[in-house]
């Protein structure tokens, strides 16, 4: 009987009707996407160094993965370096010691990142807000210390001379330009995947949790399950980004699992704009470019990054893309 009565006041929410947008990209976003894709296609021929571009794309993907959590579920993970760095180590080890082809090494890095994210996420989602940030930071420090001691990471030396190998056993990737196309493909797939996740019914629930978690619970969603799945997806993509980076540079070191790397990805996303589609990519581009030009300034880079943090939080909370979007009155 209970199943037949519909209590008054309960509205059945219809499935979101397609508004004519393609894959959830609105019209301005489609324009921005095309601009980005054209840039990716033209950049290596326009005098930009492919290795620099690849670094930028790896960090762009890393920031997109991080943004999936902070921007759409409202979870601030302060330990994403653990998944990024571990993905790099695993891919490096697989490619160098086990002779695994690059596409599998990258997938393996992502899988290990996701597995680590599943365990850590399961622990960390027991607490919220500031505690969540502190727990994820402490867990990533645990990974850091394990990496210092574990034999396969090579300790202070890291894993060096990782071969890029042959894609599908056929295409040699040792030339920077061929590697660039692989990295660009990985980036675009990851970027579209994040967008697809955010605009899926699952993504709607994620956003509902961000806006009002008790309400999402009262509507019958197991919010912890959604948070955990979002965490796993984010950690897996971070692992893919780290794995790709280690293949590009042929090296996986402790720098990538250190807490300062977790801080950097937060900064990139914050600079670009939390919860925007293109913000993390722009933020990563800005920060990586800045690091490149200021490399000889040593510790001043840290000072400048800290200063940008402070400026963003105090005066510029929407980030670059968020501000542009607000100016043009569109969501980018």
């Amino acid at each position: 009987m209970a199943s037949e009565t519909t209590a008054p006041g309960i509205r059945v929410i219809p499935a979101p009707v397609s508004d004519g947008s393609l894959w959830g990209f609105s019209r301005p976003q489609r324009v921005a996407l095309i601009v980005m894709l054209v840039f990716l296609g033209v950049a290596p021929f326009a005098g930009l160094y492919p290795v620099f571009l690849m670094k930028l794309l790896c960090f762009g993907l890393f920031a997109c993965a991080f943004n999936l959590l902070i921007g759409y579920v409202g979870l601030l993970s302060f330990g994403h370096a653990a998944y990024f760095g571990m993905g790099g180590y695993i891919a490096g080890h697989a490619a160098k010691v086990m002779g695994v082809p690059p596409e599998l090494a990258i997938l393996l890095g992502g899988a290990v990142g996701a597995a680590l994210g599943a365990v850590f996420g399961w622990v960390a989602i027991r607490r919220q807000g500031i505690y969540f940030a502190m727990i994820t930071l402490a867990l990533s420090q645990l990974v850091y210390f394990v990496c210092v001691q574990a034999p396969f990471t090579g300790g202070e030396d890291g894993i060096q001379a990782i071969p890029r190998g042959k894609l599908f056993g056929m295409f040699d990737l040792s030339a920077d330009l061929s590697m660039y196309w692989v990295v660009a493909a990985v980036f675009v797939i990851g970027f579209l995947l994040v967008h697809r996740i955010v605009h899926s019914p699952f993504g709607m629930v994620m956003k509902a949790i961000k806006e009002n978690e008790p309400r999402a619970t009262s509507l019958g969603y197991r919010t912890d399950d959604y948070k955990l799945l979002a965490f796993i997806l984010s950690a897996g993509l971070a692992g893919v980004a780290g794995a790709t980076k280690s293949l590009v540079f042929g090296i996986a070191t402790l720098t990538d699992v250190h807490w300062s790397m977790s801080g950097e990805v937060v900064l990139m996303t914050l600079v670009g704009g939390l919860g925007t589609v293109f913000g993390p990519v722009i933020g990563a581009a800005v920060i990586v470019t800045m690091q490149n030009y200021l490399a000889e300034w040593g510790a001043w880079v840290t000072v400048i990054q800290g200063g940008i943090f402070v400026a963003c939080v105090l005066a510029f909370r929407r980030g670059i893309v968020g501000e542009i979007g607000a100016l043009l009155k569109v969501k980018l």
């Binding site: 601030l76 801080g263 840290t302 000072v303 990054q305 800290g306 200063g307 943090f309 402070v310 909370r317």
Partner: peptide
Amino acid sequence: KLDHLYGLLLTFGIGLVIEGVFRN
């Protein structure tokens, strides 16, 4: 008045600045 996470991010940034200055 904002989300508590902004306080965390701000103090993290200030910490970076201080540490960087002392390292220089």
